[in-house]
Amino acid sequence: MDVLSAYLDSLFAAWPRTTQVTELKREMLGTMEEKYEELKQSGRSEHEAIGIVISEFGSIDELMDEMGIQPAGEADLTVSEETVRDYEQAVRRASRFQAIGWLCILIGVAATLFIAGLNDDGGFAHWSDGQAYLFAVIILLLFVVPALGLFIAGRNAKGNYDMLNEEFVLAPGTETYVRRQMEGFAPLRSRSMVIAACLGTLSPVALLIAGMQGEAKTPYGASIMLVLLGGAVFLFVYSGGIQAGYQRLLQLGEYTPEKKEANRVIARIAAIAWPLAFAVFFISGFLYQRWDVNWVVFPLTGVLFAAIGGLYGMQHRARRKV
């Protein structure tokens, strides 16, 4: 009987899918179907029979209480509207910090390249190469150090919201607010993405044009390319960060309860694996001078992570199906 089965499905929708619950549901469906068949044999119409079976079903809460089950919707943690608004502000601030940080780093590298180019052109004729080199490094540090500060500030801004990594529900009405905010942000986001993609694709053109002017001009082209890329990264990081914040609140995309569990596991492995990869990289580089091949550890670690994530996801889905 599809109607009875659909009725049970709707009542059990909020229940966790454990073996015990599946068994109970199957058993209850059996009982209801038997009752339905007998009612029909005693001359009731299909509609009457279904009506009687459903009216004699009782209250699902009674069963939940007895089995000590909490409906999946009632997670232990409710996030208030105030927290959501604070988090929204924090995410915007953090995304801005991170985006500016990346822009600084790319501009810093661009400036260094530019100085190197100028030096080759004889722009620092009264300086020695060593002095020019020092100048380039100072300029680089002038950009990179504030960038690191911005990254740390960005992390701190978002640091007080660890509870969003756990299971939570939004306070009533708040979900609509978040959805509306996310929709309101969508046009800006898509515009940022288009501009970022254009900047990213156009950036090598600068290098090409500079290259055609002669080999000495290449560093200038490269630095212009990096500045353009910096703009692209800025837009990606800023709008991507805000979007991710909304997804995190709505528990979508990378932030569904299953994904969160997987991400927690992966984060634990990452805390060991990445430092290890760096150690291998530096030891093989400084001690064995194998800079030519040792960079392979990074893509390798990356691939390993994708594999672990995939395996974990597969295993998790399989377990949920049982």
Binding site: L24, E27, M28, G30, T31, M32, E34, K35, E38, E56, F57, G58, S59, I60, E62, L63, D65, E66, M67
Partner: peptide
């Protein structure tokens, strides 16, 4: 189902045990 049917019969249709009560 047999238990629920027999309870109904024995009570002369005066008491019907709800499904959820039975399984609780």
């Amino acid at each position: 189902y047999e238990i629920s049917k027999n309870i109904r019969k024995l009570s002369e249709e005066k008491y019907v045990m709800k499904e959820t009560t039975l399984y609780s």
